[in-house]
Design a protein around this nucleic acid. Sequence first.
DNA 1: TATAAACGCAACTATTCGGTTTCGCAAATA
DNA 2: TATTTGCGAAACCGAATAGTTGCGTTTATA
Lengths: 108, 108
Amino acid sequence: MRRDIFQAIADPTRRSIIALIAIRAMTPNAIAANFDTTRQAISKHLRILTECELVRQEQQGREIFYSLEIERLKEIDIWIDQYRQLWEKRFNQLDHVLSTIKQQKNEE
Amino acid sequence: MRRDIFQAIADPTRRSIIALIAIRAMTPNAIAANFDTTRQAISKHLRILTECELVRQEQQGREIFYSLEIERLKEIDIWIDQYRQLWEKRFNQLDHVLSTIKQQKNEE
DNA sequence: TATAAACGCAACTATTCGGTTTCGCAAATA
DNA sequence: TATTTGCGAAACCGAATAGTTGCGTTTATA
C-alpha cells in the first residue's frame, strides 16, 4: 500500500485533522468530537497520516496524543514552488507590459 | 461527484500531466505518448483536471490542446501558506535560541 | 477487584477510482 | 467518396477507499 503525502492531504477530513492538531496535540477522541463520524474512522485517518509521517504520536498513560509533523508539509511546498515561479514570472511579464504602456503614455 | 483540486493533484499521473502541459499546450495523444497507458485513461485524467479548472482546452480542428491554468494552483499555495508561517515561526524561535546561546558564550 | 474509559485492530460493506475495451462522431486525407 | 485519425463517452472490471460494527488490551477509577 503506497502512502503518499499528496494522497494524505487529498481527503478533506484529513486536512481538517491537520488543521486541528497544528495548534496542539490531541487524542483521537478529542479529534473525533469535531466530526460527525466515529472515533475508529478518525483512527484510520490518523494511521494514514502517521504512515506518511505527517503526524507523530506520543503515548501518555492510556491516551495517545497526535501532533503535526509540520516539516513534512515542505514536500508539498517544494512541489508547488516550481509552479509559483511560473506564475510569478507571468505576473512580472504583465507588470513589465503595464509599465511599458505607462512609460509610452508619459512620453506622449 | 465532488471535484476538488487536492484530489486532482493526489494522483501521480495527473501531477505528471500537469508538469508536461505547464511548458506548452498538448493534445491527449501527445500526452499519452509519455505514459505506459492508453489515451482514454489520459482523457479521463484530463476530464478530472478540467472539471476542477486546473486545465483549459482549446479545440483546433480535430485536435484538442490542453494547457495548465496555473492560477488555480494558488489555492494549494494558500492552503500551505498557513503552515509555512508555522514552520518559519518555529525556525525563527530556534534561531533565537541559538543566538541567545551564542551571546551567553560571548559573555563568559 | 470490578468497572469504565481510551485506544488499535480486524472483518465487513458500499462507493470511488484508475484502468481497459468498445463505440460513435467529426475532421483530415487518399 | 472512402478511409484514417483524433477525440470523448459509455460499459465494464479489479483494487483501493472511507466508513461501520465488533472485538481485545491496557490504563484509570469507583
